[in-house]
Design a protein around this nucleic acid. Structure first.
Length: 210
DNA sequence: GTACAGATTGAG
DNA sequence: TCAATCTGTACT
């Protein structure tokens, strides 16, 4: 059977964060630059649902120099530094002016594994992208990617192209595990909401158990 | 201006 | 268990 690869378009991201977070599982994130082509299957995501969400940088519609990309239409990159050293890669979701996004927390490496090993300084495939900071390091994502539109890679003027691709992987509903988000204990009642999604059988997720 | 916590990670 | 180290916020 033949499956066609297709780049995910704007419409894919113009939905509720929870819906997009679930549908991103099984999709491939691709980064092409001058020297390499890197890709992997997304196996873990988190939804950040907007101004009411106490865990979100856009809680109470806050707008700062750091988070202004959250207000872009669905399909743009919101990337920021945490703990002074690790990048976190989000994709905006929904309409312009509504600050929602999905965080990519873990990826199963596919193409460019040698390059990932070089950047991550480990040969353990399970450690290459099994966490949001690890994933960014493996893929070479940093502030240069801030605000890029991943639905129009052909228009990108930077040397790098980034997009999500559907390669025909089917993730059944029963394969998706749901849990609390990681590292947001300060978010009171929002800390307990089940907004993390991952492929339960994947060894490439950031935490092996709940 | 100072102080401090954070959507994490790897070493000890 | 802890420290690395940048950004935003709440103070002085």
């Amino acid at each position: 059977m033949h499956t066609r690869k297709s780049i995910l378009k704007r419409a894919f991201f113009m939905k509720a964060p929870v819906e997009v977070a679930r549908e991103m599982l099984g999709k491939y994130i691709v980064h092409i630059d001058n020297s390499s082509r890197i890709s992997g299957m997304i196996v873990e995501t988190e939804a950040y649902t907007g101004p009411r969400d106490k865990a979100s940088h856009s809680y109470r519609s806050k707008k700062t120099e750091r988070n202004r990309a959250m207000y872009l239409p669905g399909g743009h990159i919101y990337i920021y530094l945490v703990y002074g050293m690790y990048w976190q890669f989000n994709i905006t979701v929904g309409s312009k002016g509504i600050p929602q996004c999905v965080l990519i927390r873990a990826v199963e490496p596919s193409e460019g594994i040698d390059k990932m090993i070089e950047r991550r300084k480990t040969k353990k495939i399970l450690d290459l992208a099994s966490g949001p900071g690890k994933f960014c390091q493996a893929f070479g994502f940093n502030r240069m990617f801030y605000g890029l539109d991943i639905t129009k890679p052909e228009l990108t003027r930077t040397p790098s192209k980034v997009y999500l691709e559907d390669r025909g992987e089917i993730i059944q509903k029963g394969q998706i595990s749901i849990a609390k988000r990681i590292g947001i204990d300060y978010a009171e009642e929002w800390a307990d909401k089940l907004l993390r999604f991952y492929i339960g059988s994947s060894p490439y997720v950031s935490f092996k158990k709940l």
